[in-house]
Amino acid sequence: MKGFVEDIEELTEDNKDFRRVLYTGKHLQLVLMALKPGEEIGEEIHADHDQFFRVEKGRGEVWIDGERTKIKSDDAIIVPAGAKHNVINTGEKSLKLYTLYGPPDHKDGVVHATKADALAADEHFDGATTEG
């Protein structure tokens, strides 16, 4: 197995897609995200897993169980399992971030260019990993 070894900062800053799955393991998934000004991921709750976010570029807010915190480039965020959360771009430029969580939630390699594409897609992790 090769695993994943790449320049995550460069990949994240160059990403223009709302969601881009970079790597899917059996127990963990790496996803790039780019939020347009005013755009948000949308409220979520993951009952069975924690989630890590890293902001590479831009600024915004993260809401975790109703508590709002400003975020900016180089910030790390951990959302505990069971917490209602959302990430919102409050800046004037794209908010670029990546996230790690497990188990995987999306099909390996999936790309949703826009949030509308992501909402319209009825795709979920199908058990296939990056390395087969």
Score class of each variant (00 low, 15 high):
His85Asn: 08
Pro103Phe: 02
Phe4Tyr: 15
Glu13Arg: 14
Thr69Met: 11
Ile64Asp: 04
Glu10Ala: 14
Lys96Glu: 09
Thr114Leu: 05
His85Gln: 11
Glu43Gly: 10
Ile71Phe: 07
Glu61Asn: 07
His27Phe: 14
Thr24Gly: 00
Ala121Met: 12
Phe125Val: 04
Leu32Phe: 04
Ser73His: 01
Ile41Ser: 10
Glu67Gln: 14
Glu10Val: 11
Glu10Trp: 01
Asp117Ser: 10
Gln51Val: 13
Val79Cys: 08
Glu6Cys: 10
His112Lys: 04
Ala116Ser: 13
Lys72Glu: 15
Trp63Ala: 05
Asp105Trp: 10
Leu22Ala: 00
Thr12Glu: 03
Asp17Ile: 04
Phe53Thr: 01
Met33Leu: 10
Lys96Gly: 08
Arg68Ile: 14
Leu97Glu: 04
Glu10Leu: 12
Glu13Gln: 09
Asp105Thr: 05
Val21Phe: 05
Glu40Pro: 03
Ile45Leu: 11
Gln51Cys: 12
Ala34Tyr: 00
Glu67Tyr: 12
Trp63Ser: 08
His106Trp: 13
Val31Trp: 08
Glu67Lys: 15
Gly42Arg: 02
Ile45Ser: 09
Leu30Phe: 14
Thr69Ile: 12
Phe53Asn: 03
Gln51Pro: 04
Thr130His: 05
Ala47Asp: 15
Ala121Arg: 13
Arg68Ala: 12
Ser73Gly: 12
